[in-house]
Design a protein around this nucleic acid. Structure first.
Lengths: 180, 180
DNA sequence: CGGCGTTTTGAGAGAGCTCAACATCGGTGG
DNA sequence: CCACCGATGTTGAGCTCTCTCAAAACGCCG
């Protein structure tokens, strides 16, 4: 889910060093200087922003093949925390190297930009879906985009994607089962 | 508002042809072949997606300085409609030229990618804000991001940005006035 | 003045959130 | 094997909040 695709970053991160993170460990924190770009190889990580009012917002749920905090490529400082959800392995590439490669390899820059554009599309769509007041509409719109309900055991992830509580999603699902 | 900033596309669209659109006119429609990239010079336009279930989702509210449907640069066909909200003037640049320029001018590609990355950030944040159940929290989070309440007469735009009805926003505002 | 759009406030209904109880399933260890 | 445990799924009841429909005050402009 949140299937922002592959994006072939192999050549970009081909020789990048690997680093492992333990569950709950921070990949970086808000305020840290940005020294490298991070591509998740395995596991999941969340980008968390604290609003100061006790609100905790998850800006990105990154999985394998995704780059964390893409905008950090143009920022000297992180604006959010990144924490590992379970054990993670990540490819770490110096930001300077990253940007030099984009500058010298137009096809890599194109792939990178294409990935960003699709991420924009996906995020805008998610925002629209979450502005629908009824759970039925959110699920309907989400499924209409080609998304599929995952196996049992991962339904809560869908609830998080839709921005509703698990109970609300469970009820909607059983409602649909009853109606066919 | 929705202030995704400048992004200096002047050089990219410097010699692009200008075209005017009447209120309600379509800049393009879903299914149309993508032949050019469009930069809004003045006026506002909305990207609308119809889900087939009668749901009408506004994926992007574009203003001056913004490029419409960034992902169309890599797609042969539009996936949504774009309609002018009021009179619009837009710079229109052949998609082939657009991509050639990005390929041959690394600094332009960098600017383009930076703009996309910031759009991703903004869209993700908007999605998070809209997943908050209470209007008070949405407004609070939105203001905490440095956004300011516009002049009277434009408050409905804020309601749309937050994904709530105008009434709900008005009530929250008067609640805050009473509380200070 | 007379529209027209925005702002404001009210009342009711609907829907989700919260809290809670319980079933189910998979894995762990006695 | 079975008891236990945690996480997920399921359902219920009540509260709160938003949405919807409605009415009216306000401001702007022809």
């Amino acid at each position: 889910m949140i299937a922002i695709m592959s994006g072939n970053f192999e050549r970009l991160f081909a020789d990048a060093g690997l680093r492992d993170f333990a569950p709950g460990e921070a990949l970086f924190r808000a305020g840290d200087a940005v020294v490298s770009m991070i591509l998740l190889r395995s596991g999941h990580a969340e980008l968390v922003r604290h609003t100061g009012h006790g609100l905790r917002m998850i800006l990105q749920r990154a999985g394998p093949g995704q780059v964390l905090a893409e905008a950090s490529a143009w920022s000297d400082v992180y604006h959010c925390d990144a924490v590992a959800r379970g054990p993670c392995r990540a490819a770490v590439l110096s930001r300077r190297t990253f940007r030099m490669r984009l500058k010298s390899a137009p096809d890599l820059a194109d792939t990178w930009a294409k990935n960003l554009a699709q991420a924009v599309q996906a995020a805008r769509l998610r925002a629209e879906i979450r502005s629908l007041p009824r759970v039925a509409d959110r699920l309907g719109a989400w499924l209409a985009e080609g998304n599929r309900l995952p196996d049992k055991g991962r339904w809560q992830e869908v609830a998080a994607e839709l921005g509703v509580t698990r109970e609300a999603l469970y009820r909607e699902l059983s409602r649909r089962r009853r109606a066919g």
